[in-house]
Design a protein around this nucleic acid. Structure first.
Length: 277
DNA sequence: CGGCGCACCTGAGTGC
DNA sequence: TGCACTCAGGTGCGCC
């Protein structure tokens, strides 16, 4: 489920239930996620601590503790975080449960186990976060997300623009669905080599990024009030998609048939009439 | 360095 | 009903 908007909606949904709560007990499954569950660090640094803030960076959620340690979640392809009554029945593929001081608990559920859980203990958190940030790209909602910066990042590269948008070391948070939707909105062909795009075209791409991501967050936001106990599945089904998954359907703009190709190993949908190099 | 292919997993869907 | 196969929204590794 999770690209930037879904992770952001998850953050907003968790916030009112977790803020200022103490984590009393942590339990985990025996399964390995993308990384091994850091059982020792969870016990030492997170259990007994209070939640002071929740931030998002790229597609990661950073749950900040009162003492400075940080609990980091990545949802992978199928990860979900939700808040449940502690007595609610467990679901298959629940991998972590954080019991809170109010008879509720947060649960991390992930069928495919591409997600990850990390802990940055207080005494190393600043350094580990620095290192973490050093290989993450620009946040679309940050002031650095400008056409001039995009031109600079693209200058020495020849990759297709879709691959560029999805490369988390260059731009943070855009995944396959939104890359397809953004390029359709910007009328740019996904195969276009990035070093051939003009600053004006980057302006269009940047504008469409913000528009699409903002709209997706707003669509997901309508489910935030239901977040409790729903193992929040905010997201894609709420948003009107123009091209993603629409092979052989008609383009909403010109009516021509939407095509599907593979770019960088990922399914790519576009209208060859509306989207030009 | 840049760019590609693939592996990591499970489950849903398809065609025979 | 069963089997074999393909595909899925992410990330990071090894290889050229």
């Amino acid at each position: 489920m999770p690209e930037l908007p879904e992770v952001e909606v998850t953050r907003q949904g968790l916030l009112p239930h977790l803020l200022q709560r103490r984590i009393t007990t942590i339990t985990w499954s025996s399964k390995r996620l993308r990384l091994p569950i850091p059982r020792k660090l969870l016990h030492e640094s997170i259990q007994g601590n209070c939640i002071a803030a929740i931030d998002r960076r790229a597609k990661y959620l950073l749950i900040r503790m009162q003492d400075g340690s940080v609990l980091v979640f990545h949802l992978g392809m199928t990860g979900k975080l939700g808040v449940f009554p502690a007595a609610a029945p467990k679901a298959p593929h629940d991998h972590l449960r954080l019991q809170l001081d109010n008879e509720m608990e947060m649960r991390f559920n992930d069928v495919r186990r591409f997600g990850s859980i990390s802990v940055w203990p207080a005494e190393q958190a600043i350094m580990q976060e620095e290192e973490f940030n050093s290989n993450k790209g620009i946040e679309p909602f940050s002031p650095e997300f400008t056409p001039a910066n995009l031109v600079r990042l693209a200058r020495r590269r020849s990759m297709p623009v879709k691959t560029f948008l999805m490369d988390s070391r260059i731009i943070a948070g855009i995944g396959n669905i939104y890359a397809n939707e953004i390029l359709f909105a910007a009328s740019i062909h996904p195969q276009t080599k990035v070093n051939l795009l003009s600053e004006k075209q980057w302006q269009k791409i940047a504008d469409c990024c913000l528009q699409i991501l903002t709209r997706a967050i707003a669509a997901g936001g309508s489910t935030i009030s239901d977040f409790l106990g729903a193992s929040g599945n905010p997201g894609y089904f709420q948003l009107q998609l123009a091209v993603y998954g629409k092979k052989d359907e008609s383009c909403p703009r010109c009516g021509k048939t939407i095509e599907k190709d593979t770019i960088g190993g990922r399914a790519t949908y576009y209208c060859s009439n509306c989207q030009t190099m």
